[in-house]
Design a protein around this nucleic acid. Structure first.
Length: 466
RNA sequence: GGUGCCAUCGCCAAGUGGUAAGGCCGCAGCCUGCAAAGCUGCUAUCCCCAGUUCAAAUCUGGGUGGCACCUCCA
């Protein structure tokens, strides 16, 4: 297994802290709004990573947090006249539902900020005790970046540059401009938490460090977790600050490997709140099967920036369709397990820093070869068995082809339309039997008008949603 | 302004020193009543310039063009 470490900028062989085990922590969503395609991309990438690690025999512990303490959540609650929990519960549920549609498995641990406040207090206290943090007279607690000689090494930045660019809005009470808040004192009547440091809210970067310490860190290990992941924009300042907190508060570093996924862009530009060009997952899921989105978003290497557009999405669907057509071709057969060369090659490709393009090329080659042989005369008993095993392997490691193929090809078609299509197909069958091809073609045109295509096979005539 | 990433066929996209994977589209053919699906075949010398090397898309230097981070962001 090889992984590209985005802080060292080099591909490395994965050597776990503990034999045959792997711990993974990924920064999850702040639940104050609907998930967009970028959230989907990140979740999919690390879902794939856990599957590949497991296929390589690692016992994986995968944690992804839910950030449910945040100023934006509070702002939304006030605007919508709801409680914090109504907001966070709603968006946590929708996040889970949408991820399920994408075939993203739930992490083993999904810690919430609200349920880990004690761990955050502990961390702040340790940093204060060790002289890496200080309180201001306003009651805020800041991390003292000057006290950490390794600060900025993770993201390879230069302190002077950061200073020059510091915005004027930051607190005048900080010792150093780069210092960041561990605890933000809040004196108005908005929602606050009572800590040993007074009423307020934890700083942005604190929760991940605290939750990793509580849920994943092993005593006496050199690193708290094997792999820490997240979106490319989190490297600085979020991960830099997380790493500083953990390094200074404990006797270990945060992560042995850092992985950052590239961004999903729309029309060549970053999707962001400020540009108002976010593409929400819930909207995409109305138009496309979740598995199509899964295939599409995973079809480009995870570190590349991804330019979302519907044409490429259609292309991805066509590619996924081919898996399902072969599955349909062998639909009556029982599942079968057998290790094949194809599976070894597929796993090898994915184990090389998730080389998805190579993996997909291997799948396409397997599909073509199998179809070619099935097209030829013969029963092909062994080939069919192996193919069932291969399709099963693709399902488990990539999450492609997990549905009933007939259901897959009928995505978004209502029952009434289905019944009408069946009726037309029966009429067309009779017309063909009567050699009345004018009528048969007329019926086909009518069928096609429902935005489906039909295909005559030895097993009968089937339709597929376009 | 600082830092970093990227530039491969019409489109998407692997490959990072040994002579260009794959998919979509297109063209030709097999199959089909005709289609669709499936199959077969065909389709690039890797942004530009200079250099290193027996050998470069792959390394070095210089251009040009795109993007990102430095502020909440996956």
């Amino acid at each position: 297994m090889y992984i590209y470490d985005s802080t060292k900028k080099v591909k490395l062989q994965f050597i776990p802290l503990e034999e045959a085990k792997a711990s993974l922590y990924v920064c999850g969503p702040t639940v104050y709004d609907d998930a967009h395609l970028g959230h989907a991309k990140s979740a999919l990438v690390f879902d794939l990573l856990t599957r590949v690690l497991r296929a390589n025999g690692y016992e994986v512990t995968y944690a992804r947090n839910i950030t449910d303490i945040d100023d934006k959540i509070i702002a939304k609650a006030i605007i919508e006249k709801k409680t914090i929990h109504e907001i966070t519960d709603f968006y946590t549920d929708s996040f889970h539902n949408e991820m399920a549609k994408l075939g993203v498995k739930r992490p083993d641990i999904e810690p919430k900020a609200t349920e880990n406040l004690e761990a955050m207090y502990d961390l702040i206290q340790k940093l204060l005790d060790k002289g890496h943090a200080y309180e201001t007279k306003e009651g805020d607690v800041y991390f003292d970046t000057a006290s950490d000689k390794h600060y900025l090494t993770l993201s390879s930045r230069v302190q002077e540059d950061e200073d020059r660019q510091e915005r004027v809005t930051s607190s005048q009470l900080k010792k150093h401009q780069a210092d960041f808040a561990l605890w933000k004192s809040v004196k108005d009547d908005t929602i606050t938490y009572q800590s040993p440091f007074g009423a307020g809210r934890p700083g942005w970067h604190l929760e991940c460090s605290a939750m990793i310490e509580k849920h994943l860190a092993k005593p006496n290990a050199k690193f708290a977790v094997d792999i820490h992941g997240g979106g490319a924009d989190l490297l600085f300042p979020h991960h830099e600050n997380e790493a500083a907190q953990t390094r200074c508060a404990t006797n270990h570093s945060l992560a042995a490997y850092w992985m950052h996924n590239g961004f999903v862009n729309i029309d060549g530009r970053k999707m962001s709140k400020s540009l108002n060009n976010s593409f929400f997952l819930k909207d995409a899921l109305k138009e496309y099967d979740g598995e199509v989105l899964r295939y599409y978003l995973l079809s480009t290497h995870y570190r590349s920036n991804f330019n979302f557009n519907e044409e490429d999405l259609q292309t991805a669907k066509k590619r996924l369709d081919k898996i399902y057509r072969l599955k349909k071709r062998l639909f009556s057969l029982a599942t079968y397990e057998e290790r094949t060369e194809f599976q070894d090659a597929l796993l090898k490709a994915l184990s090389d820093d998730l080389n998805i393009s190579l993996a997909l090329a291997l799948i396409d080659a397997m599909l073509s070869k199998t179809n070619e042989i099935l097209d030829s005369a013969g029963k092909h008993k062994q080939l069919k068995k192996e193919t069932m095993a291969n399709l099963g392997f693709i399902e488990s490691i990539l999450g492609f082809g997990v549905k009933n193929p007939y259901d897959y090809f009928q995505f978004g078609v209502d029952e009434k339309t289905k019944a009408e299509l069946e009726r037309l197909i029966i009429l067309r069958k009779q017309a063909k039997k009567d050699k009345n091809f004018d009528l048969s073609d007329k019926l086909r045109d009518e069928i096609l008008s429902y935005d489906v295509q039909i295909m005559d096979t030895p097993q009968g005539t089937f339709w597929e949603k376009v």
